[in-house]
Design a protein around this nucleic acid. Structure first.
Lengths: 223, 223
DNA sequence: TACTAGCAATTTGTATACAAAAAATCAATG
DNA sequence: CATTGATTTTTTGTATACAAATTGCTAGTA
């Protein structure tokens, strides 16, 4: 599981840019292991749809604008449904977990300094924690399985480099609305709120696509 | 890909019952290969959620009634959405493919003799072809990726052993309704029709769960 | 008989070697 | 100079060997 997570994190953190060719031996040298465990991780990453086989080696998959739209449509559908089901099935324990995650989220936002990549990462992490708590509260294990695969893709774009204070506060407010709806068992309201919330995420990624591309170029210059 | 499909088919066809312990070496002997390609296939099957790791070896995952419900909820959501999107984005070529698949479906139903397992398999296969055509017409590649993982699970229950003529004809009729809605670009109607259609599939599996269990017992006696 | 220590057997994890396939290089010829 | 064919190199696919871990078994002791 270690190799898999290492490569996955490396992809999300932009160590391997899309299009870059990765061979098993290259990765084996980098991780100082033999090819066998590397192969396993690569096959799993392929099953996730994160990397694609090349004629020779593999490459981080490059997603188009249309991919982003489709993936967010899917995520909207799945997480919206999860929220509506959470409103029906949530236990007191579920509510506590969501509230706790959201409290941490508020904290992280207040401590978030845009320049400090660590504090931004913290925000991303705790945000995910809230979303995960909602999905778990839905009681549908299988939906969780699929959402977890959908969620990682947008991270590749690292749109969190362009978070601003107003946006984060608004996001926190929406979390509160979702939480309230789930607490009050207003299933349809929870669904719609989650829906909107995720579409905002999509807009953020799409509006910053150019910035993201430039950022990658700058990073390449530095190395 | 061959090893993966072999084991997957074996699971779907009930060669390995849930709970049965499978070791890499056992499978390697069965397929007359070394463990290396077997390992790969096993890891992929695990990623699909079809088999679960044991302390020693792996086992075909055993799904509970609740799992079936959850999986069908998920499939309903995804395929319903796919149908609604198909109604919006469908091209003439898409329509042709769906109509063609449905024609084959009608043929297969008419040729279907309950006792002949081959003709029943044909019905299952062509039915899948229609559903796949709808998903493709939605234009969302990513949703296709996830549906393909969801679709295989119910096959493990082999509820098609209990298909009857009335049910198949009704199913064909619903396909026609879905197709018509997509053709007329009635997005919401397509979604609802697909929704209902899949829920009927769920009912069929759930009402025959006991028969299925007995069938397995009989098969074990025979061997 | 019941319990435990230690040994044997099973099974997975990792490394490595070699075969096969695919691509790149290079040379020869028109 | 271009094109083609052969050779070399790179890279993956598969087999196998061995290490590590885990289970089960057996024998010995109380």
């Amino acid at each position: 599981m270690n190799v898999y997570n290492y490569i996955k994190d490396a992809i999300v953190l932009g160590k391997y840019e899309p299009g870059m060719r990765l061979t098993e031996e290259h990765l084996a040298n980098e991780l100082k292991m033999s090819r066998t465990p590397i192969r396993e991780a690569i096959k799993k990453l392929q099953a996730d749809g994160l990397i694609v086989p090349l004629k020779r080696g593999v490459s981080v998959r490059s997603f188009t604008k249309e991919d982003i739209r489709q993936i967010y449509d899917l995520r909207t559908l799945l997480e919206g449904y999860a929220a509506s089901q959470a409103a029906i099935h949530r236990t007191d324990e579920d509510l506590e977990k969501m509230a706790e995650a959201n409290k941490l989220y508020e904290q992280a936002i207040n401590e978030c300094v845009q320049a400090d990549i660590h504090s931004v990462k913290k925000v991303v992490e705790v945000n995910q924690q809230f979303h995960e708590a909602v999905v778990m509260a839905s009681g549908n294990q299988h939906i969780h399985f699929h959402i977890s695969k959908v969620v990682v893709v947008p991270l590749i774009f690292r749109s969190f480099y362009w978070y601003d204070r107003g946006m984060l506060e608004r996001s926190l407010e929406v979390h509160r609305i979702i939480l309230k709806a789930i607490e009050n068992q207003e299933s349809e309201r929870a669904r719609i709120a989650m829906h909107e919330h995720i579409y905002e995420g999509r807009d953020h990624v799409l509006t910053h696509l150019e910035d993201i591309k430039n950022h990658h170029l700058i990073k390449e210059d530095v190395h």
